[in-house]
């Protein structure tokens, strides 16, 4: 790996790590979600500093060029991330649905009680 490439890769992975920690510090990002991103940052740093790891990985999965290994793992990571978000969205949709139903039921209850208190029997 060229020296420039190495410096660039190290700078990028450090930026990712620092950026994530900073976002968590400012409470912009929940700790729960920071995990995946931090792991990515550290993995990036690892394969840059210890190039052997990347070459070993390439041999393991049968990739001819180490950069392809990076690409394929990058893709897999993004896909998992997207799946993770889909899971979260499904969960949130269900929670929002339950909340909306609850709000509607409570609203009716409040309205009924209001009518009862004001002595207006008609609904």
């Amino acid at each position: 790996m060229l020296f420039r490439q190495k410096v660039f890769a190290i700078v990028v992975s450090l930026l990712v790590i620092v950026g994530i920690v900073e976002l968590v510090r400012r409470r912009k990002l929940a700790e729960e979600y920071s995990f995946l991103w931090l792991v990515t940052g550290f993995l990036l740093l690892l394969v840059t500093v210890k190039l052997d790891v990347l070459i070993f990985l390439s041999r393991l999965i049968g990739a001819e060029v180490p950069t392809n290994t990076l690409f394929i793992f990058g893709l897999i990571f993004l896909m998992l991330l997207a799946l993770h978000f889909s899971l979260k969205f499904s969960q949130m949709a269900s929670q929002i649905k339950n909340l909306a139903q609850e709000v509607a039921l409570l609203q009716k209850k409040v309205e009924d009680q209001g009518q009862f208190l004001s002595g207006d029997g008609a609904r």
């Binding site: 909306a100 139903q101 509607a104 039921l105 609203q107 009716k108 609904r123």
Partner: peptide, 30 residues
Amino acid sequence: ARQEGAGVVRLPFNLGVGAALQTGYRYALR
């Protein structure tokens, strides 16, 4: 519906027929 004397539960936004029915089921249980 209210003017006709029916009880009305109003969902804050459109949820779909299943979720609307389920709101009714929850009401019935309560």
